[in-house]
Amino acid sequence: MLMITVITPTYNRAHLLKNLYISLQMQTVFDFEWIVIDDGSFDNTSEQIELWIASEKKFKIKLIKKENGGKHRAINQGVKLAEGEFVFIVDSDDVITPDAIEIISKWIEDIKDNPKIVAVSGLRGNKNNEQIGDFPKGKDFVDVKNSERCINHLLGDKAEVYKKEILLEYPFPEFEGELFITEDVVWNLISLKGYVVRWYNKVIYKGNYLKNGLTDRSLELRKNNFNGYTYSVKQNFVALPFPYNFVALSVYKDLAKEKGFGLKKLKKEFNMSNKDVFLLIIISFLRKVRSRCGSN
């Protein structure tokens, strides 16, 4: 069995995929496969991938063509067809470092006999080779639940590689008519089951936040995929430590108000106590004060 499956969901990114493909060709080892899920593109994505499939000799490439359904559905489908023991999700506009697969393979060897560790992760960097996010000072690695990253100096996007069997057990939820749900929905659910990730202080992934990409459109995506957003916040309210769970709920409250969710309905929806409601009001007030002070 292969060690690693690289999964790349893509939508109209044929002009960018070549950079990722080149970074895969430049790997120091080739114990991996690459699954590209064309999520209903209307550019020449599939034609480009088919040319690479025909010519590539170092590693296997698979192409899945499907109707547009969002990144999370594409990942679910890719995981089902993965031959690797671990899954590395790499976006179509990003690249990995030349030694990424070799390093990940070594990390996997270090944790494979520990049933509580279900993933390894490196760091992400930007196009200027600057580290994205933070990492605990003086540490080579730490074992931490995804839901506890905020209190362990692990903020910012990382480069997680999860066991395929755990992603099969906990797939991304799919809501009819919605095309987006945050990846933390699955990562935090896995945390709630008691599993941890081993986070390493090493950049293995480089990316950019493109205009009109998923990150750039986060508020719009929350509004247009409200059921999935509600599901995510409910889970975070349980999984995240205080006060981060209430901050997430406070952000949700502002958007829910536009959808006709008053505080009474919110209390019932999230099974909140009177104390919870009081804390939510206080934290929402503090957020507004901070926002106003920051704009002056």
Score class of each variant (00 low, 15 high):
E183P: 01
K58H: 11
D113I: 12
E165Y: 02
Y209M: 07
I190M: 03
K106M: 07
N296Q: 06
D110M: 13
K66V: 15
L219I: 14
D184R: 08
Q131T: 13
T230W: 00
L266V: 12
R222W: 06
I37W: 02
V251C: 10
F278D: 11
G125W: 00
D110K: 15
V251G: 05
S121G: 10
E83T: 09
Q131I: 15
Q77R: 13
V144Y: 09
K253W: 05
E47K: 15
K71S: 13
I37N: 03
F261P: 09
Y209E: 07
I111A: 13
S121Q: 05
V289E: 00
D157S: 12
K65I: 11
K65H: 01
Y244E: 09
F175C: 13
K18N: 13
I281V: 15
S284C: 04
T5P: 05
Q48T: 13
F180N: 09
Q235T: 14
N271W: 01
K65T: 12
T28L: 06
G213Y: 10
F135H: 03
Y195M: 04
G156A: 14
E165R: 05
F88N: 10
P241Y: 08
N296L: 15
Y229V: 01
I282A: 11
N128T: 14
K211F: 11
K288T: 08
N188S: 08
M3Q: 14
K268A: 12
E178V: 10
F42V: 14
K223Y: 11
I64C: 05
K158C: 12
I61T: 02
S284D: 10
V144D: 06
K139F: 13
Y244M: 01
F86P: 05
G260E: 02
K259Y: 00
F30H: 15
G70F: 07
K145L: 11
L263F: 09
M272G: 06
S250M: 07
I282Q: 10
K265P: 00
D140W: 05
K257V: 06
Q48W: 08
V203G: 02
I181T: 04
E269K: 15
D143Y: 05
D143A: 08
K65F: 01
N212F: 10
